[in-house]
C-alpha cells in the first residue's frame, strides 16, 4: 500500500497522464461530475458519482464501425479503426467497477466484440472506495462492497490522504508509473475508514432491499404480473435511465450517408424507445408497458437466467436521481416483491 497527501493530488495526476490519457471525475459547467480528460490543474470532483457512468470508455455512445464507399454496383468496405492510445480512468466507484464485469459478460462472450475488447485492453481502471454513500445507493443489495471496489488499482481517500493499492498486473504498472510521488502507507487508516463506512451502510434507506423475488427462474410469474401496468403508467418513454445506467448495453447500428460514402456507426439504444423492436411488418412491444417491462425484466430476470444468477444492476442509484418521473428499479422491485413464489 502506498499513499500521498491530498495536497499533492495534482502531482499524481501529472505522473499518471504521462504518455497516455487520464480521465478523472470533474465538475462540468452545470455543477455535475463527469469523467473529463485531465489537464494540468484540473481538480477532482467531490461528488460521489458522475452523471453518466464510466461505461462509455469501453462502450462509447457512438462509435464508427465500418465505412463504405459506393461506386456504381460496387462497394468498398473500410475498417475505420486506428490504433487507440492507452488510458487510465481514475476514481471509478465500486458500482461502476462491477458494471465492467457485467458488460464483459455480454461483449466478451463468443463472438467477442473486438471494438469493446480493444478498449478494455487499453484501459486501466483505478477505483475509489466510497467514503460518503448517499440515500440512492443500494449496491450492497447486488453484492457490491463500496469499501472494497474491484479494479486494476484501488484508492481509498481519508480526510487528508490518498491510499493506493495495486490489484492486477495493469494496476501494478500504474502504481510503478506514479511511484515517484508516492510514499509507503500503512493499512490502518484505510481499515478505520472502511469500518466507518460499514457503519453507515445499514443506515441507508435502501439497505434492506431484497433480490429474493427475482432471478432467472422467476420468469413467467414476474412477466405476467398485473403490476407492470401501474408501474409503467406514467413512464415518459425517454431514455434517461438507460443512458445513465452503467450496465445498459443495448445498441443500435445505423448508417449515415455523408455524401461521399456511408458511415456505419453503433450508438446506444434504449428498450424504452418506441422504435426499438419495430420491424417492417409490426412491433412486438407496442405499448410503453411492454418496453418498460423489458428493461426491468432484462436486469432482474433475463440477465441472471443467462449469467449464472448474476443480476444486471449494480445499485448505483443513477436512475433514482435522474428519472424525470422518479420511477426506478427500486420501486419496481418493491412493488413486485412477493409476485413470484
Amino acid at each position: 500500500m502506498f499513499k500521498l497527501s491530498l495536497n499533492n493530488l495534482n502531482d499524481l495526476f501529472k505522473a499518471a497522464a504521462e504518455g497516455g490519457a487520464l480521465y478523472i471525475p470533474a465538475d462540468d459547467g452545470a455543477g455535475q461530475a463527469r469523467f473529463t480528460r485531465w489537464c494540468d490543474g484540473m481538480e477532482m470532483s467531490k461528488a460521489l458519482k458522475t452523471v453518466k457512468s464510466a461505461k462509455e470508455f469501453f462502450f462509447p455512445q457512438t462509435e464508427s464501425l465500418v465505412d463504405f464507399k459506393m461506386k456504381g454496383k460496387e462497394i468498398e468496405i473500410i475498417d475505420p479503426r486506428t490504433e487507440s492510445e492507452d488510458f487510465v480512468v481514475f476514481g471509478v466507484r465500486a458500482c461502476d467497477a462491477r458494471s465492467f464485469s457485467i458488460l464483459d459478460k455480454v461483449f466478451l462472450a463468443d463472438p467477442v466484440d473486438t471494438y469493446y475488447k480493444s478498449r478494455r485492453e487499453h484501459g486501466t481502471i483505478v477505483t475509489m472506495a466510497c467514503s460518503r454513500p448517499e440515500e440512492t445507493c443500494f449496491c450492497t443489495a447486488f453484492g457490491v462492497d463500496p469499501t472494497a471496489p474491484e479494479g486494476d488499482a484501488v484508492c481509498y481517500m481519508t480526510e487528508d490522504e490518498l491510499f493506493i493499492e495495486a490489484k492486477t498486473e495493469k494496476g501494478t504498472a500504474f502504481v510503478e508509473k506514479v511511484k515517484a510521488v508516492l510514499t509507503d502507507g500503512d493499512a490502518a487508516p484505510v481499515e478505520a475508514q472502511k469500518a466507518a463506512v460499514k457503519e453507515i451502510l445499514p443506515k441507508l434507506p435502501l439497505a434492506n432491499l431484497s433480490t429474493d423475488s427475482f432471478g432467472g427462474d422467476k420468469l413467467m410469474e414476474l412477466f405476467d404480473s398485473p403490476k407492470w401496468a401501474e408501474l409503467s403508467a406514467s413512464c415518459l418513454g425517454c431514455g434517461t435511465c438507460t443512458f445513465v445506467c452503467p450496465t445498459c448495453q443495448c445498441y443500435d447500428i445505423r448508417d449515415f450517408e455523408t455524401g461521399h460514402g456511408v458511415k456505419r456507426f453503433r450508438c446506444w439504444d434504449s428498450c424504452m424507445f418506441s422504435d426499438f423492436t419495430k420491424m417492417a411488418h409490426g412491433n412486438p412491444r407496442l405499448t410503453q408497458l411492454e418496453r418498460f417491462r423489458q428493461r426491468f425484466m432484462h436486469k432482474l430476470v433475463y440477465f441472471p437466467a443467462n449469467n449464472d444468477g448474476e443480476f444486471g444492476c449494480v445499485g448505483c442509484g443513477r436512475c433514482l436521481s435522474k428519472c424525470p418521473i422518479s420511477m426506478n428499479i427500486v420501486k419496481v422491485m418493491k412493488t413486485l416483491e412477493g409476485e413470484s413464489k
Binding site: 455480454v106 461483449f107 462472450a109 463472438p111 466484440d113 432467472g216 420468469l219 412477466f223 448495453q249 443495448c250 445498441y251 443500435d252 447500428i253 439504444d269 428498450c271 426499438f276 423492436t277 423489458q294 425484466m297 432484462h298 430476470v301 433475463y302 440477465f303 437466467a305 443467462n306
Partner: peptide, 15 residues
C-alpha cells in the same frame, strides 16, 4: 435484429 450475435438486446423473447 441489429447485431445478430445476442448483444444489441432487441430480439429477445424472455431470456
Amino acid at each position: 435484429m441489429k447485431c445478430g450475435v445476442g448483444k444489441c438486446g432487441r430480439c429477445n423473447i424472455g431470456s
